[in-house]
Design a protein around this nucleic acid. Structure first.
Length: 480
RNA sequence: GGCUGCGUAGCAAAACGGUUAUGCAGUGGCCUGCAAAGCCAUCUACGGCGGUUCGACUCCGCCCGCAGCCUCCA
């Protein structure tokens, strides 16, 4: 039974889809005026893992993740660069897709863009005005009248009286209430703009998500996700807009992931303490970043540091090392379920743990990936033991490990490739050179020339290459 | 000030009202020419003070500390 923490109720709830067997999930994606940082990577990886797991449970999932490609920051950045805003957003959308691909994030089913949803946005604002929930302000902008929406604050646990508006922000005099927010913003000269009943302008920040989500998934859908910082005001405002316009419940379940931190502080653009995904990829393999993200629960804070990334790398190596030398390829066509029969039979006889059940139990508990990973490590230990003696079990364990790991989007590379590859493009030591040195060392070993053999091994170690002799006389190697 | 959430061993990170998390690091052993990897064993815990309970890291209260939101942010 899948349980998910719902921000709306602040409880874990049993997941019940609106329509049997189907799930609609909308996640707030990027505003594309810069490269993705590790915080964005976390959202992508977390909800990619959620999506993979829903599919594993045989739900017919529609996963929507939007792109906000028009807003103040985009305009500002485009002006700074002296380039057209379209060109700017296209560049960063492309960059985002590259980062996703690297991190093993499967594309969402639908990726709507704000600029392609203007008609829907305008239509929604019109309805909101008709419903007396929105008004045209003194400056021509259209605002949402927050006090007219009775449940305002339900998601973030705030009430209007507590919100002490104006304390930290200049009160916009065009608004009736300082907490009212913009739905449609009039264009200044030379700003990108679209025609509307209120004149040339552009959508406010929150309305595009209301329009895109309801258009793609219907007025009422199952799951809406995003970073914790979107809880208020963004998601609160989305509820006000969507429910105000449709009169229906907007979303059943809200999921929010925790922040990536640096030195106990939120990684954010405004603080300037962020690392972009492409920066980090220069130093670490993408799968290590993915593992690092999954090594803590999605709602917990995730502290970013080299030490942590290095540990993630070591841990991942342990898993790959366990798979090393096992011919998983010949089993690749068997699906996980047909393997269950074998495993469950052994399980019943008390011979084996049912790792798949343990894994699913962890994931069913609000996507507890740290525990799911710990099951993979238990499995790896079992596999390592089996490799010594039991051929049949070796295959079963290796296959189970790889299949379960695929639900997390890890461990799908060839172990040899993973262990031998380097992120450094200008790696001085080629694989061929290493193989040659190993051959020389093997010759030295034959004549029991331990001094030379050890020197070669030490030299290679100095260059980040670890040699491992096997009892059969073979020598394998990997990079540190 | 209002509202969230967190505080676990050397580090990271989970679960659970009574029983081994897991990974890295440490220690001892097996294996190895020696290593590495692997296996076995093992040492370090639950911020503080009270309460509930036969029993609390786990539930409740208070205190201390940290982070986040209340403004753009994933």
């Amino acid at each position: 039974m899948l349980k998910i923490y719902n921000t709306l109720t602040r409880k874990k709830e049993e997941f019940k889809p609106r329509v049997e067997g189907k799930v609609g999930m909308y996640v707030c994606g990027m505003t594309v005026y810069d490269y993705c940082h590790v915080g964005h990577a976390r959202v992508m990886v977390v909800f990619d893992t959620v999506a993979r797991y829903f599919r594993h449970l045989d739900y017919d999932l529609t996963y929507v993740r939007n792109i906000t490609d028009i807003d103040d920051k985009i305009i500002q950045r485009a002006n700074e660069n002296g380039e057209d805003f379209n060109r700017l957003t296209e560049r960063f959308i492309e960059a985002m897709h590259q980062d996703e691909l690297a991190l093993g994030v499967l594309p969402p089913d639908i990726e709507p863009k704000a600029t392609q949803s203007i008609a829907d946005i305008v239509r929604m604002i019109e309805v909101l005005i008709k419903n007396s929930l929105a008004y045209v302000g003194g400056n021509g902008d259209v605002f949402y009248a927050v006090s007219k929406f009775k449940n305002y604050g339900q998601l973030s646990g705030k009430n209007l009286d507590d919100l002490q508006a104006g304390e930290r922000v200049d009160v916009d005099l065009a608004k009736r209430n300082p907490l009212d927010f913009v739905l449609w913003k009039m264009a200044k000269p030379d700003e990108p703009s679209w025609q509307s009943p209120w004149g040339l302008g552009r959508p406010g920040w929150h309305i595009e998500c209301s329009a895109m989500s309801t258009c793609c998934l219907g007025n009422h859908f199952d799951i809406h996700g995003g970073g914790m910082d979107l809880q208020f005001p963004h998601h609160e405002n989305e509820i006000a807009q969507s429910e105000g316009a449709t009169g229906e419940t907007f979303v059943n379940l809200w999921m929010h992931n925790g922040f990536v931190r640096i030195n106990e502080e939120k990684m954010s653009k405004s603080l300037g303490n962020f690392f972009t995904v492409r920066e980090v990829l220069k130093q670490y393999k993408p799968e290590i970043i993915r593992f690092f993200i999954l090594s803590s629960h999605y709602r917990s804070p995730l502290n970013y540091s080299d030490e942590q990334l290095n540990e993630a790398g070591t841990a991942l190596k342990r898993l790959y090392n366990a798979l090393r030398g096992v011919n998983v390829a010949e089993l690749i066509d068997i699906d996980l379920n047909s393997l269950d029969a074998i495993v469950e039979d052994r399980f019943r006889q008390g011979e084996a743990r049912c790792y798949k059940l343990d894994f699913e139990k962890a994931m069913d508990d609000d996507f507890n990936t740290p525990v799911a990973l710990s099951v993979l490590f238990d499995l790896a230990r079992e596999l390592n033991k089996a490799k010594e003696t039991d051929h049949e079990s070796t295959k079963v364990f290796a296959f189970t490990l790889k299949k379960l790991a695929s639900l997390l989007g890890i461990l799908q590379e060839d172990p040899e490739d993973f262990l031998k590859s380097s992120v450094l493009e200008d790696e001085a030591l080629t694989n061929e050179t290493i193989e040659q040195s190993i051959q020389t060392r093997l010759d030295a070993k034959k004549t029991k020339n331990w001094v030379l053999a050890d020197k070669i091994r030490d030299d290679l170690k100095g260059q980040g290459v670890i040699l491992e002799d096997s009892p059969s006389g073979q020598t394998t190697w990997r990079r540190e």
